[in-house]
Design a protein around this nucleic acid. Sequence first.
DNA 1: GCTTGCGTTCTTTTT
DNA 2: GAACGCAAGC
Length: 810
Amino acid sequence: MSSFDEFDAFEGASLSARAMAARPMPYLDELNPAQREAVETLDGPVLMLAGAGTGKTKALTARIVHLLNTGRAQPNEILAVTFTNKAAREMKNRVGRMLGQTVEGMPWLGTFHAICVKLLRRHAELVGLKSNFTILDTDDQIRLLKQLIQAANIDDKRWPARMLSSIIDGWKNKAWTPENLPASEGQAYNDRGPELYAQYQTRLRELNAVDFGDLLLHMVTIFQKHSDILAQYQRWFRYVLVDEYQDTNVAQYLWLRLIAAEHKNICCVGDDDQSIYGWRGAEVGNILKFEKDFPGAHVVRLEQNYRSTPHILAGASAVIAGNENRLGKTLWTEAEDGDKIRLIGHWDGEEEARWIGEDVEALQSGTRGKDPKSLEDMAILVRASHQMRAFEDRFLTIGLPYRVIGGPRFYERMEIRDAMAYFRVVTSPDDDLAFERIVNTPKRGLGNVAQQKIQTCARDHGLSLVEGARKLLELKGVGGKGAKELQLLIDGIDRWRALGVQREVEVPLNDEEVIDDGLTRTTTTFNSAQEALTHIELAEVILDESGYTAMWQNDKTPEAPGRLENLKELVKALESFENLQGFLEHVSLIMDNESEDTEEKISIMTLHAAKGLEFPVVFLPGWEDGLFPSQRSMDESGLKGLEEERRLAYVGITRAEEVCTISFAGNRRVFGQWQSQLPSRFIDELPEDHVEVLTAPGIYGGGYGAAAGDFGGGMQSRMQSANTYNSPGWKRMQDRAGERGISQPRESRGSVIDLEAVSSHSVGDRVFHQKFGYGEIMEIEGDKLVIEFDKAGEKKLVAKFVTAADDVPF
DNA sequence: GCTTGCGTTCTTTTT
DNA sequence: GAACGCAAGC
């Protein structure tokens, strides 16, 4: 390793420390006393316990700025870790804004994974990898494990690869390599776990690949085994900041502790009450024992909440108080009273979606007394993603624009992964997994048998799969159509590689740029050359000549146009990168996809995805025992699981600024089967004084109007008893209501009828819909179309969401 | 080798 | 109610 020259090259931050020291510090005046304390205590270990909505990011960024301003550290001497790319981006932006200018050189502000990739590229050889290793995603991981499982003669029905993958993941999260795996883990995966883990790691090394967990595990291993290297980083990173510390797992914890051991200037920010990633290996224990790990730690509590009204805060506090193991914080606010938390029960999940849809429209139009609210300011937070469907269906029907956050991610879609596998085959010759993925996509007549032959041939000659296939052709190991097609593919790969290399030869590297690139030594940087293909053109050529694009063009399934659209988007995304390698690297780490669309939409997401966000109006549907708290969580982790669920409830409620509506349904379809549900035990924990119970239209046959109090005396007295919802009586009443079938779906009111959109359609027309595919119009009702879809059956949809079948872009 | 249809099993949460 | 795996049939 060649000393720390590269670090010094991060002169990038054009401001010198001394220049900054002279700058004024107006940002300090904007902080409350607790925040200020957290910002100004620069030396030694600091634990910032920041409750929900207490200005944690503000304090964290102010601290970075303060470090720079006081000349304590250069921008590249600060290590600042977050969990999500979004948080990293946000922090970068805010630091820039606070400094009043853009800071180029915060190279070590990023996610755990992104930072570890940077480090690991530099030291790859110490764990038997080359620095251009590829990062496998879960899909590749599973396929690889499956191969190993089958090779070991294990029935992968009884012992699925997914299971092994999660076991290995768990081990990696705990920083256990195959060598130091505790004996107590011996019986995992039917006693074969440890042995397969070792095989898997060996195979990864052969493929010059790592999985997500390896990024941290390898770095911890390197730090532990090479004290000289560790010492360099310990000296280099004078200040360490960690966001969401309660989410760190053991590997991350060890990594941080090793790095911070020298200066001990580590500032961890977190909230034990918001620890919701235990299932992913996060250890709340890390934050609970911070003071033991770092003696003399300065603990600062941020307790003034700037987000929610008192009722909402009181509700959240009461729920979380049910947990035993807490560091304990008391949130308070100066905000005015506002609305109580609203609680409402429904007949079933569809009714719940219908009611929320109407309430959203009422809030939007201002019918509900207050100022009209934008859809952007509203969110529906669910426990499990399958709950989203009821809302999507309903909103599609009434024409309410919505956005699902964190759904199937762009880069996880089949067509995107296929396309990227093609890129990978071209850029990294040994990427067997990528080759496997694309040999027979599109269909080339190379089925199992042919693929087995390629595998065998490659293994016998110690070659990669591409080379193995070439050899096989030379030896005439395959015949007929398959041989011809395989030859075409190999020729194609050669040609594409040449097209990529051609540029490299014609346009020599610019030395400075390579250094500037920091630690990624192998990254090549091109200047734009007119005569050669750009990587974007290359990508297009690959997708074209391989027949991949054609495959989807000829595909008549409803998803095909969408997939082509996605491929176009993929190519467009290439524009912001200098070459294919850079792009692939980016993609393997960026798992969030934010599409910038301008239309106002209500957001639908899981509670997990909502952490760190806030909305004026929040809906929390599905508060039923078994669903939330999740049965599985309680079965698997008992009281610990229940407490994590409770923290999830806390996270949910504290997302709301002004209006928080909790609801539950008496009946819900689970696995396609109707089940009657009991209200969540968390509902019993809500403090009566801060909750307003609304009449359930599904139970009493009223609508939103009835909920506003417009009903007869008999109902009124029922309402009184309903107010004692946290007594067994409430539950019994819910049960009883559940037995009486009531309330059929009613038509939504209030949405503006878009006749223009309807008029372009007539009964019998063939139409296309993004989600349901092709279908035929059976009936027109107002601005709604009743459509019989080929695949999805009959649906009633707002006209503006369907296009005439002929207009579908191909 | 590929397509189709049937049965099975399942759903938390994700960097 | 869907997504996946498997076996049968083309």
